[in-house]
Design a protein around this nucleic acid. Sequence first.
DNA 1: TAAAAATACTCCATAGGTATTTTAT
DNA 2: ATAAAATACCTATGGAGTATTTTTA
Lengths: 321, 321
Amino acid sequence: MHITLTELRYLVALDKERHFGRAAKRAFVSQPTLSVAVKKLEGELGVTVFERNRGEARVTPIGRRIIEQAYRVLGEVSALQAVAEQGRDELKGPLRLGVIYTVGPYLLPHLIPRLHESTPDMPLVIEENFTGNLTQQLRNNELDAAIVAMPFEVSGLSNWPIYDESFVVVMPHNHPWTEREQIPANELANENLLLLGAGHCFRDQVLSLCQDCRESDSARRTKSGSSLETIRHMVASGLGVTVLPQSSIPNLSQESRLLETRPFAGAAPTRQIAIAWRRSFPRPKAISALRDAVMQCDPSGVTLLHGASASNVDDGFLEAV
Amino acid sequence: MHITLTELRYLVALDKERHFGRAAKRAFVSQPTLSVAVKKLEGELGVTVFERNRGEARVTPIGRRIIEQAYRVLGEVSALQAVAEQGRDELKGPLRLGVIYTVGPYLLPHLIPRLHESTPDMPLVIEENFTGNLTQQLRNNELDAAIVAMPFEVSGLSNWPIYDESFVVVMPHNHPWTEREQIPANELANENLLLLGAGHCFRDQVLSLCQDCRESDSARRTKSGSSLETIRHMVASGLGVTVLPQSSIPNLSQESRLLETRPFAGAAPTRQIAIAWRRSFPRPKAISALRDAVMQCDPSGVTLLHGASASNVDDGFLEAV
DNA sequence: TAAAAATACTCCATAGGTATTTTAT
DNA sequence: ATAAAATACCTATGGAGTATTTTTA
């Protein structure tokens, strides 16, 4: 009924051998198989490609053109297979990665060189955004993976928690709390609590630490900053206290003498960071590579999940205070 | 095992619909058929072309490249079919025709315009030569058909007699034979018989008319000319007599008053003209068209064979003397 | 007569169908 | 709950084999 690639391959073999028996050998089939196939093709095309003689099969003028076209078809098929061959490596080709604002600035500087080393053919296209936007972009196929904070349950998306990160109280160096070893969460509401603006999941996570905080927030008694860095500057300038994730407590530069940090009293509040991706995303190895790279960032101060601890590299992404 | 054109068509359908059910409809198959085929193709290529979601099937980046390549493959297949479509007409494309020297000059001027009319897309590539050379060229695929004199039995070649043509005795106007109505063949040896050189089948046909001629020829008492025209001039100048085929007795111009023609006594000797071609030549219609065109040349003086007489066109290829 | 292609037939792989289950929203 | 795709299973076409015949040089 339809012309097939096999038939075209037989045509080419016959063009090369000009002899049904030898062409069949070249094509690794029996002579009748090739004979029947070529005849079928000629019937389908309504054209005689080969003039059969006892001595040799001669190509007709129209047959010549058809065979040349057959070469082109088979050439394009080879090209297709070559493309597939190239694309077979999941760790090749860009990965579009989204990161929430409160992780990106602290993780990426460490993650990118590591990923560049482990998967040099997988450049990252990075987008920083709120969790909600990242979610949408993942679903819309605008992103391939995202680094977000748990809980993160979205239909169609999978996630894989990578590490737990504790929260730390940050205050000016001359704050009364500097006299204490630990700060109880429920006392946060008594101070000027500086927080990120609405939309940041970290803001909500901090607010959930104590009922009073939530209330004082509804009463608009908290102040907002547009990034953790901004907030840190505000705290350093004495405007109040805040809570930061462990990873954002960096090698303090100028401000180092102006800020003090204290852990929470009791069980340390944490956030869980995870990688999320479309369930149907067809490059699971890319996700694994991403996870591995994150885990190789020195986990001091954070708790790696699911075994697979990274080696003790000392230029880790968290340099403990 | 191997990738098929059908699979590529399914790929394209799915690319257009981004939905397995609709793509199946577009490809006129059931949804499972298309699903299985696409999955098989992806397995064969080792690459995920489509990301399946509830909503729609999304093309992956590598899938995009593969689909584009699939379009190219199918495009070349279409081109191949278009070529075949073009070549399907046997009356299209050049026909390489050989003609023996003693027919060409008299038949071709009439044949070519007729063929141009009946089969305008089949130009003639013409070669005049001896029967032996034409035979070789036919077998070597250097010619497609030839017009020759019978008998013509060559393995691998078919032939089809078209017409019988009588022989005529030609003499100077002042020759004694002009007194007679008919000339007995066996008296030819008594005269200066002018003949074509060796190689021309017509020479041998004339020599076979009488035993004496053959003998006088072996004794090198005949004279040779290089073409029938040359011989006619020689006869007109009084050098001797000759025998010509009917078709070469043209509208006599200057020489008309210098030449006389007489039929043979008894059963008129004739030659039978035929079309020959490779048994395997795949354009039988071209042969038929050629035959028909020859037969449309006015057959006055020649005997058409196999019925199928041409209409009474009066500018026929033979204008009786 | 010998070589080559075509035919006859048999078999089985697989493309395609229908019915159903699984999956994901 | 529903829509979509995947799976299970069955059927039939036709691609490929072997054995044989036909063709033709």
